[in-house]
Design a binder for these strands. Sequence first.
DNA 1: TTGAAAGCGATACCAC
DNA 2: GTGGTATCGCTTTCAA
Lengths: 336, 336
Amino acid sequence: MTTIHEVAHAAGVSISTVSYALSGKRPVSEKTRKRIEDAVHTLGYEPDAGARMLAGRRTHIFALTEPLRADTHAPTHMAFVLATAVAARRQGYDILLLTDEQTSEGMNRVAASNLVDAILVLDVAPDDERVAIARTVRTPTVFIGLPDDSEGLTCVDLDFEAVGHLAVDRLADAGHERITLLGQTEVSYRRSNFPRRLLHGVQERIAARGIALTWSVTGAASTEPAAVRAAAEEALARGDRAFIVHAVDDVHEILLSVLDEHGLTVGADVAVISAAASFDTAMLSVPIDTIPLIPQQSCELAVDLAVRSLDGEAAPRIHLIPPEYRAVGSVSPAGD
Amino acid sequence: MTTIHEVAHAAGVSISTVSYALSGKRPVSEKTRKRIEDAVHTLGYEPDAGARMLAGRRTHIFALTEPLRADTHAPTHMAFVLATAVAARRQGYDILLLTDEQTSEGMNRVAASNLVDAILVLDVAPDDERVAIARTVRTPTVFIGLPDDSEGLTCVDLDFEAVGHLAVDRLADAGHERITLLGQTEVSYRRSNFPRRLLHGVQERIAARGIALTWSVTGAASTEPAAVRAAAEEALARGDRAFIVHAVDDVHEILLSVLDEHGLTVGADVAVISAAASFDTAMLSVPIDTIPLIPQQSCELAVDLAVRSLDGEAAPRIHLIPPEYRAVGSVSPAGD
DNA sequence: TTGAAAGCGATACCAC
DNA sequence: GTGGTATCGCTTTCAA
């Protein structure tokens, strides 16, 4: 195993110079730096993780707690995990996985043993038990999601209420006076809080703009596609010609096929907006305007906040990411 | 931060006794052990991870490399990650995530820096680049999956060929002479090797038993359900009354609904076996005999092998897990 | 059955 | 701009 001593010897300098050359925490002359870098390269030197943790006060590891509930949407969840890992790595951090069954035990353990520099919390529930732990632990913690009680916490999330506002505004501006919201599964309105926040945003804005709303909870599209069809059919029967879809990709496809069966053209006869979807809506059979939920955005910001809090910057606060509207032509004036 | 010194002081012993009491590597009298345990408990002591890594030669961390390809089936993949994490934790190990973009770089880095005790490789491709790295690195590596060239490696996987044999045998024993295999997507037959192995097992056995086989590649069920329907319809038109399904849950459901539309009763008019599925086939609308792929099995064995290889046991070799048939009545004699 | 002390391999302070 | 060295907290001989 290559140690810093061997590198120092090969480069003809002391170990402290090697350390400083690598960390950049002290100026090193151009030539010695070059010699050191060469030695590092030819010897394939990589600082020992344990020694670095012990001597420095950084482990260069973040914990990621992810409670995999039965109703977790795997693709979305994976996108968040991946985005977090990539963002962390770019800042020189690795990700240590903390799964269920060890949620509280795991957080306490990694904190007490100084195994990680910070903890990132995924898939936050309204009454998340990890909130209490985050408050007792010394290790900086960043929530990707928003619990009901976020007092004193650092949280990052898409501004779902603003998503609701934005969606309604677009449809209202296009002249629609009746909107159907195809929502998530019933259970997700209880277990998570972002569906509620989006719904709330929508309700606020329809009230302000005098618009009629019908909100339909959808079942899991894969197991009960009939429920989604039924909701779509009823909406059309009611005369609704504007849809906000806050659901998985399958639900979008079902809606699109129902519209197609009725001979309705998206963007002409009927308006559709996909709200807070994290999959690529360009993959749908018909392009749909979208107000995307971008995992990379939330996760990069979360990692940034974690890093900054290690440097003493960053006071606890909630960071709501403003939504962005991406038009591709699925919304047009009503009745045109 | 609580250190081993404080624990030793509180218990009135030396730090070495504390260390031994906790590791159990040296006998400690009952009373002193009790005193130490009490001190540990009241002080909330947890050994410093960095110090432990440096002094001991174990980090108590396993790396898990998971290349998330575009065609990765998220739920299955998550099941494997989760199963690995749980199994590792039970043996006192945490999981460090190594994603794409850093596959080779990551493996080399964690190995060179002694960050992990072993590396677990998920989602193995036939010509996986991680095979070469595993051979150059000192860190013990266990593959969960089987690459084409597995010389000198430790691999764990379901015996997919045996799954093929078993499925054909059951159908043949029930008197079926014509079988349709609804397989995976085309791309997975190129990118992975377990679909090929299952197919091969099926082909071997139908040849041996003189049975006619039609193999259909299915598209992604969610985006091209029509392709799956078509394959099922053709099979019925051909007169096939026995199906082996090696695909995601959606494909199963489509087949079942086609059978239903034709007035065919599973287990009476037609035989269906689900091969190597990792989801719960009891959740399907009609119960189906299954030869399951159990992530927990592979992952637990893999973790076991990793742990054992640290103790110098376990020589490199391939571990194929024998398949198991679970009958629920979806297979019966042909033409009855 | 228990204790003293020598490392483990970095970081970062104190000198020069 | 560079070098010496105390230090981090634990594991593990070596001794008693």
